[in-house]
Write a protein that binds this DNA or RNA. Structure first.
Lengths: 151, 151
DNA sequence: CAACTCGGTGGGAAAAAGTGGGAATGCGTG
DNA sequence: CACGCATTCCCACTTTTTCCCACCGAGTTG
């Protein structure tokens, strides 16, 4: 599975070099085929190996079409899903529309999150992280799943 | 299990020599493979043998993705989790991003904490320890789990 | 007391990864 | 049909990372 934070750069053509330690896994899992889409809560992109995405898309499709929240989720996620492929030097090309959505400039952060990656503009990632650290300090109400968590 | 506080040094490349008394145990437990990630409350790093980490990662992954508190925890912990390996002279390489997070300079403290280590900048460790001693003097309210604790 | 061993430290060379750009190909358009 | 724009493919350069070896100092032993 994918973990860890990687500083990456988008070149002038919008290409992004996938860190090599992930490449082999991506190739064997999905033959280098990935799907990028938008995150519903934050201005970042989600990047899935194709088979992972197909499961997610199925789950999304099964949601009740008449529920407005579900509908919105479908439109955002399925509506922005874009096929990407690793080129011969292990890079993927992020299309302009997605680049804009996530306000990606030259330096970005690629964050491993288990079955997917998140791609953030570097500055936004740093700011958001500081926020999360502050919020968690104030020890707000924890959901029951977390109360008993021992790390 | 890991115990004790060790003064360690990071060289100019960010390498850290694991104290020898832990090496054998790390090698037999995880073949020298470790995971470092950030602590969400303090500016220090957590270092787990790989199998220990995998349990934790599983727990984290099972949390509901749509819950913001859970999401933050996943992003911080899985998002920063980095594979480390003992090299031939028993050192691990702490990547720059984690070094920055924990404001690690040349001298650091490696603290055994049972199933993991904590890695602190030496100055920050000393200051924090003084703080904890002061706070505990004021004998604040104890949570119920601690009331019955006998040491 | 010298020599050896072991843990820790530093640095250099080889290998690999990241980066940029140019040529070729394909597509849409005038 | 020809032209221009955009995309893709490929090559080459630069930087980073990794691997390996040598040195230093302290503690131990013959």
């Amino acid at each position: 599975m994918f973990r860890g934070a990687n500083k990456v750069t988008l070149d002038s053509k919008g290409r992004l070099a996938m860190p090599t330690r992930y490449r082999e896994r991506i190739v064997e899992r999905s033959n280098g085929r990935l799907i990028a889409t938008v995150d519903r809560a934050d201005r970042c992109l989600l990047i899935y190996p194709l088979p992972e995405w197909e499961e997610i898309e199925l789950k999304l499709r099964r949601l009740p079409t008449l529920n407005p929240v579900a509908r919105r989720l479908q439109r955002l996620m399925i509506g922005h899903a874009t096929d990407l492929e690793l080129d011969t030097s292990g890079r993927i090309l992020i299309p302009p529309s997605l680049r804009e959505y996530a306000t990606l400039s030259r330096t970005a952060m690629l964050i491993g999150q288990g079955n997917r990656f998140e791609l953030w503009d570097e500055a936004l990632w740093n700011d958001s992280r500081e926020q999360w650290l502050k919020v968690d300090e104030t020890a707000e109400e924890l959901p029951p799943e977390l109360e008993s968590l021992s790390l």
